[in-house]
Amino acid sequence: MQKKHLVIAGIALLPLVNPPLVYATTAVEQLLVEYRSQGATEFTVEAGKELFFKEFVDAKSTQVRQCTTCHTDDLRQPGKHAKTGKRIDPLAPSVNPKSLMEIKNINKWLKRNCEWTIGRECTAQEKGDVLTFMQSQ
């Protein structure tokens, strides 16, 4: 009985040991719950990866755009803004603990970058898939 209590206490205290990891997960988890409530079904790394690498043709400029245009093929590497060349921190939480931490930031960039890349806002399903993929990196 004593041992069981200690284990429970240990699990309860776990968030204090490595808060960023836990919060990052919390932010994405919260968003996934939200997306599910909007009608999305199951999110998979594979679907997210496919979307991340998918090529879209911009109607106005006829240029090919994809997530990797700025974020590169390797999410653990820093990216580069397509237009200004400014450095973009790696998206993979495994190398950039600040990534996927704040709901506000995730929303801002998903909205702005889906519009630039696909030409429209992403669906709840697409957002959930791509976040699941990014989180796995």
Partner: peptide, 14 residues
């Protein structure tokens, strides 16, 4: 520039 933030050099700043 601020009045056209939805078309800020091909990006919608939102």
């Amino acid at each position: 520039l601020l009045a056209t933030q939805q078309e800020h050099f091909e990006e919608n700043l939102g």
